[in-house]
């Protein structure tokens, strides 16, 4: 009876499924729910301590319930880390990289997938290889070159580097998408006298826009979360990103428990907000990426 209500679309099936019978299904649910709760516990502890005063913390420890809502930790971190500036740096870097990397990926993929230039397989392999390369292998020459060129500790240095790193993946993905682009469309456009530049922007671009927007979001999020190269390249307050700011203050004596937790909270909020807004696109993109 309850089954029929809970799963109306499956009433046709008469075969007894042990997962829809009594205790077993609740046990399964409980087990998975336990995993989910365990995953969320650190977040709960973080939020709990972000709004707890230092005296509450020293009296009751990390698990006690705060005696009042304390927001000085938040204010503290906001000021010490110059959070709005960090947020702006992250937005500028991730936004520029996302747009630039999508454009570069599209140009590369157009030459490979539609232009079918000679040796395209090796070019794709090269880009794929670049995507797997550990950043440690390129970091020192980049650091040295940036210092020589006066790009060290500028947002531009990180923007250029990640434009290339992300477009390596984008080229690989888009080249295979464009490789299957309907030839009839291209031929019709060429017959109407459209040159390759016009074909790219009038025919190809509108057709692959959904894929490009998935790439755009991916590049933005990936760049936002990057740590290693920004750690090396960006050394002061005026250029550092949100994740770097928190790491830079780690272990600082200004960082008491509430401030650390409040800092972590505001550092992960943009990422979580972004995820909630684009959840659908991202899960669709994950699927698109999973099946080659």
């Amino acid at each position: 009876m309850a089954d029929a209500v809970l799963a109306p679309q499956r009433t046709v099936r008469a075969a007894p499924d042990r997962h829809r019978r009594g205790a077993a299904r609740w046990l399964v649910l409980a087990a998975v729910a336990l995993v989910a709760v365990l995953t969320l516990v650190p977040f709960a502890i973080m939020v709990l301590n972000a709004f707890k005063s230092p005296s509450d913390y020293s009296n009751g420890g990390p698990l006690s319930w705060p005696s009042g809502l304390y927001t000085d930790g938040l204010v503290n971190y906001w000021r010490t880390s110059q959070y709005p500036l960090k947020l702006w740096n992250s937005v500028v870097i991730s936004g520029s990289v996302a747009v630039a990397a999508v454009v570069v990926s599209l140009l590369n993929a157009y030459a490979i997938g539609i232009g079918r230039v000679r040796g395209r397989m090796s070019i794709v392999a090269l880009f794929l290889l670049a995507n797997m390369l550990p950043q440690e292998t390129i970091v020192y020459p980049l650091y040295y070159a940036a210092k020589q060129l006066g790009l060290y500790n500028t947002r531009l240095s990180v923007i250029i580097i990640f434009t290339v790193v992300q477009s390596a993946f984008g080229t690989y993905l888009l080249a295979s998408v464009l490789g299957t682009f309907p030839k009839a469309l291209l031929e019709a456009a060429a017959l109407d006298g459209a040159g390759h530049w016009k074909i790219l922007w009038r025919i190809v671009f509108p057709n692959v826009r959904p894929t490009l927007s998935v790439l755009l979001i991916f590049f933005f999020v990936w760049t936002w979360n990057e740590f290693f190269i920004p750690l090396v390249m960006l050394v002061d307050n005026s250029t550092q990103t949100v994740p770097l700011a928190l790491a830079a203050l780690q272990g600082d004596r200004l960082m008491d428990a509430p401030t650390t937790n409040a800092g972590a909270l505001v550092s992960l909020l943009p990422a979580v907000a972004f995820f909630l807004v684009f959840q659908r696109t991202l899960t669709r993109g994950v699927t698109a990426g999973a099946v080659k």
Binding site: V104, S105, L107, N108, Y110, A111, I112, I114, G115, R116, V117, R118, I123, L126, F127, A130, L133, I138, L142, I160, I161, T163, V164, V165, S167, A168, T171, K183, L186, E187, A190, H196, I199, L200
Partner: peptide, 24 residues
């Protein structure tokens, strides 16, 4: 374009290729 490489398409690889050579 449907067959292989018009040389003109190499122009599209130029910016990406130059950046790639410089950064990776």
């Amino acid at each position: 374009p449907a067959r292989t490489g018009g040389l003109v398409y190499w122009l599209y690889l130029l910016p990406g290729g130059a950046l790639f050579a410089a950064v990776i």
